[in-house]
Design a protein around this nucleic acid. Structure first.
Lengths: 142, 142
DNA sequence: CTGAATCCTTGCTGATACTG
DNA sequence: CAGTATCAGCAAGGATTCAG
């Protein structure tokens, strides 16, 4: 059948702190949703509407067809994106978020928003770091 | 001086939805904290203790010295990690999270935890997707 | 002990061309 | 319209070596 899980195997997968041991499957999902285009796809689909492939391509500036298709496939395989095909000519495909997709999108966007909100502080830290590096540089230059 | 920001430039950087336009500096920070080792470093430092380089290397299984040093530098330059050097022989360096670091670590771990908590659903979606792909495969094989 | 520097391999990415 | 296939370029990642 499709579900071949043992309760022991499941327990091993679900325990916390698993991220430290390599090959943790959660890392793959994290990779998908935080990837360069993954974030943008989730963001683009968050309005709950149906979106066509070409519409997404227009909305997400700079993405190639290959990467968009690849990202959509990954997110679909994780159960975050729903792909609806209308068997007509010319082909018509629509993408939208699943319930699960909406939830993880909220998490990802929450993280992204936090960064944007606190970006001023981060930038100041970066400048301080830069200044520190520069002064160290000047030190051994003399 | 170190601060060369104009108010217009800052305003342009801070507006929401900026993630869509490429070269958004927030994307770099997002990349740092969600990178393969970035997540694990934040997780390892979340206890609030001081951690030595070699201790982190032992704690984060599989990380190379190069990537650990690189990750720590990035997180330090973003103001998330504090690096304390004790000028003794042999060298003694300690790493810990800043206040800002604790906050973003909470966000990142929140996302990671969400994935782990909902991993059962995700895995089921992956199995369904796999099954679907396999059946499609068998279709044209015959 | 804590890294920096080097080399080398891998994998991601994007441009192009092609299919149903 | 909605992709797939292929290939080339580049950057991330890792192993090793060297240095303060």
């Amino acid at each position: 059948m499709s579900n071949s899980l043992t309760s022991e195997g499941l327990a091993a997968l679900m325990q916390r702190g698993n991220l430290f041991s390599d090959k943790c499957p959660s890392r793959d999902v994290l990779k998908h949703v935080t990837s360069r285009w993954g974030v943008l796809v989730l963001l683009a689909l968050m309005d709950g509407e149906q979106h066509r492939f070409s519409a997404l391509k227009r909305k997400i500036l700079g993405v190639s067809e290959k990467m968009l298709a690849q990202t959509l496939q990954l997110l679909e395989s994780d159960g975050f994106v729903k792909r609806t095909v209308y068997p007509v000519v010319p082909p018509h495909v629509e993408y939208s978020l699943t319930d699960l997709g909406h939830k993880i999108a909220a998490q990802v966007v929450g993280l992204a928003d936090w960064i944007e909100e606190n970006f001023l502080q981060i930038m100041q830290a970066q400048e301080q770091y830069q200044a520190q590096q520069t002064s160290n540089l000047q030190h051994w230059q003399s």
